[in-house]
Design a protein around this nucleic acid. Structure first.
Lengths: 220, 220
DNA sequence: CATTTTCTTAAGTCTTTCTTAAATGTCGCC
DNA sequence: GGCGACATTTAAGAAAGACTTAAGAAAATG
């Protein structure tokens, strides 16, 4: 298991590196963002621990770059920035976990274990279908770059379909994604929302399969 | 996106449930571990938020149980227990994230988004017969790579035949696949659909065995 | 608490698909 | 080769399903 620590504070990095090695990991250390990027480009890494206050590159920008380089690579942000907005921004930018300094080393190890046992692939925070771009975090959807305001239910339907492109969802399945237990609905709400979605995002994005349901993003 | 909150403190749960719903999630709430387990058994969930101080079951034991029931289901622990050993134990027992109370709701949402980015790869069951490719998930059928639009009944017949290639199906057997009990039909519908299928997919795919029924030949 | 937005319902319209039945075609047996 | 049984084709009316619209109810927002 090979870990890359991107951290500019040398003395802090030193201690962490040593402790990680003691815990049985092979550890690389990069003191700058540019350096870190080169390590990731070289491949062979299983997990990246990223400090945000780097001297040369904005941490979140680097994070997005690394994601592009290796989309499945788990990235844990480890930083002194404990403001809520920083956490949310970091996680939404594609980080898999966010730990603030000062931290308990045992917790870092546990969170590394969580990330390293994960074997399912991870999706980008943004989804793209043709000329439609879906930002899960901001509930913002763009058609040809232009922001379209979606209501909550519209977004929920779109997201459900976008989670599994090429898979048909029956109305019942979609309702399950929209309504909590006890809130079931007995009308053609889904149809109406789909209709409104199509008005906003174009008529070809969501297709209907007669007698079966709705589907997004397959060629048929 | 369907979230289950397992939490015994009713007033806290109420607030969280409402806020989650406002964020666009379908939310189920279980006040006991046993209840929570039943929700998970029922399926349809995308993520579980688990409180550890439950009245009836030890939280970690429940966590392990849920993991067995649905191994890919993301579980986030949300608890007042902020001791390091609790965190480590929770994460090592199989939780995907661990958030301590009191918490910022925005952070919970961000961490839910992280977990929902994971998508369990789904096997796409495809059946192939000569130059005909059948995709069950998308209800798509291709002839020489080109998508052919099939109606519901046509697809049902083709799927029935394709499920057991080389086996002859009588008209009665095929009708059983098309109609629910009580909907029986008294004409040559099956023949008509087979005819339309052949028009779309070539005349050799579905063969007739005189006096017996229809069969899908793998040698086409 | 008033205003605005979003959600649900339901009814009407439109489209596709299903069924029916009758005509035509084919096989195999006498 | 002709006859009867079975299979295929055709077309039209019926039925089912999808889409659209609008209005009242509910929920969010300030």
């Amino acid at each position: 298991m090979r870990v890359l620590l991107i951290e500019d504070d040398i003395s802090l990095a030193d201690g962490t590196v040593k402790a990680l090695r003691r815990a049985g990991y092979a550890v690389d250390h990069a003191a700058t963002g540019g350096d870190g990027r080169r390590y990731v480009e070289a491949g062979q890494l299983d997990i990246v621990i990223l400090d945000l206050g780097l001297p040369d590159i904005d941490g979140l920008a680097l994070l997005r770059e690394l994601r592009l380089l290796q989309s499945g690579l788990p990235i844990l942000i480890l930083t002194a920035r404990d403001a809520l907005t920083d956490k949310v921004a970091g996680l939404d930018a594609g980080a898999d976990d966010y730990l603030t300094k000062p931290f308990a080393f045992e917790e870092l190890l546990a969170r590394i274990r969580v990330l390293s046992r994960r074997n399912t692939p991870v999706r980008e925070p943004e989804l793209k279908f043709g000329n439609v771009l879906i930002n899960i975090a901001s509930h913002e959807v763009r058609l040809d770059g232009e922001v379209q305001k979606l209501s909550r239910r519209e977004f929920a339907i779109l997201r459900a379909l976008a989670d599994r492109p090429g898979q048909v969802f029956s109305r019942e399945q979609l309702e399950e994604k929209l309504y909590s237990w006890g809130d079931e609905v007995t009308s053609n709400t889904v149809d109406v929302h789909v209709h409104n979605l199509r008005k906003k995002l174009g008529h070809d994005l969501i297709k209907n399969i007669r007698g079966v349901g709705f589907i997004l993003g397959s060629t048929g």
